[in-house]
């Protein structure tokens, strides 16, 4: 794609003035306005090829449906992994809690904490 000339380029204005006959003021203004408009709005055909390809793929209903379903399944997978990790950590905690229920030597720290709290004025 041809890039439009930079309006701030100091060599452009003399080149424009060398056109015979010299451009009239409205023509020069129009040239500049077209240059400015050309910089901000690229035609449809000038879009990058990858983006256009992605858009085309997403326009296919079958692909769109499969994509949404895959996203849902991915969300489920992540949730299951998270729940599984939580269950493992909770099992470890509950084993320790159960041991504190039945083993006086492990219950010591709880009792000590309670007694210290009761001793406080």
């Amino acid at each position: 794609m041809k890039t439009p000339p930079d309006p701030t380029d100091p060599t452009f204005e003399p080149l424009l003035n060398r056109i015979q006959p010299p451009p009239t003021a409205p023509l020069a203004r129009e040239v500049w306005s077209r240059i400015a408009a050309g910089g901000s709005e690229a035609p449809e055909s000038a879009r990058p090829g990858l983006l256009a390809a992605i858009e085309a793929v997403f326009r296919q209903p079958a692909f769109a449906f499969a994509f949404v379903v895959a996203c849902g399944l991915f969300g489920l997978l992540l949730a299951e992994m998270r729940v599984s990790r939580m269950h493992e950590a909770r099992d470890v905690q509950l084993v320790q809690s159960y041991m504190r229920l039945i083993d006086p030597l492990l219950a010591v720290s709880d009792t000590a904490a309670r007694i210290r709290t009761e001793d406080m004025p």
């Binding site: 994509f67 949404v68 379903v69 895959a70 996203c71 849902g72 399944l73 991915f74 969300g75 489920l76 992540l78 949730a79």
Partner: peptide, 8 residues
């Protein structure tokens, strides 16, 4: 897709 993943 993002919404479906978050909801699931």
């Amino acid at each position: 897709g993002l919404l479906a993943a978050a909801m699931a």
